[in-house]
Amino acid sequence: MLLITCPATRSEELVADRRIRSVVNHPTHIALHVACPACAGVHVYRTGRRWEAARAARAQSAVPEARELTHA
């Protein structure tokens, strides 16, 4: 069982394992394609420490640019 948040309805749904449509292993993360019972769509959920680290690094590198623009 998985607890997901539907991006369309913003509701939390408890989803059975049989609703997982595919699992894709990437170098930085694992992508789960899950059929959502709330909106009947298929959503992608990404997991992994390297994915979170890469996302945090991108967010951190974008912050100094925004600060430079406000001080200019």
Score class of each variant (00 low, 15 high):
66 A>H: 12
5 T>D: 00
28 T>D: 11
3 L>P: 00
31 A>T: 14
31 A>K: 03
40 A>S: 07
29 H>E: 06
64 P>V: 14
25 N>A: 10
46 R>K: 15
50 R>W: 04
10 R>G: 00
16 A>E: 11
61 S>W: 10
55 R>L: 11
36 C>F: 04
43 H>A: 01
65 E>W: 13
2 L>S: 05
16 A>D: 15
59 A>L: 09
53 A>I: 12
53 A>Y: 07
60 Q>W: 11
37 P>Q: 05
37 P>M: 03
27 P>V: 06
6 C>S: 04
55 R>M: 13
52 E>S: 13
15 V>M: 04
8 A>F: 10
43 H>D: 01
70 T>N: 10
71 H>P: 04
53 A>T: 13
4 I>H: 04
46 R>L: 08
69 L>R: 15
31 A>W: 03
28 T>R: 11
7 P>L: 06
20 I>H: 00
24 V>D: 02
45 Y>R: 02
63 V>Y: 10
40 A>R: 11
51 W>I: 01
31 A>N: 03
50 R>Y: 03
47 T>L: 12
65 E>D: 14
45 Y>V: 05
36 C>E: 05
36 C>V: 02
9 T>N: 03
25 N>V: 05
3 L>R: 08
14 L>G: 10
4 I>M: 04
56 A>F: 05
34 V>M: 02
29 H>Q: 09
54 A>E: 10
54 A>H: 08
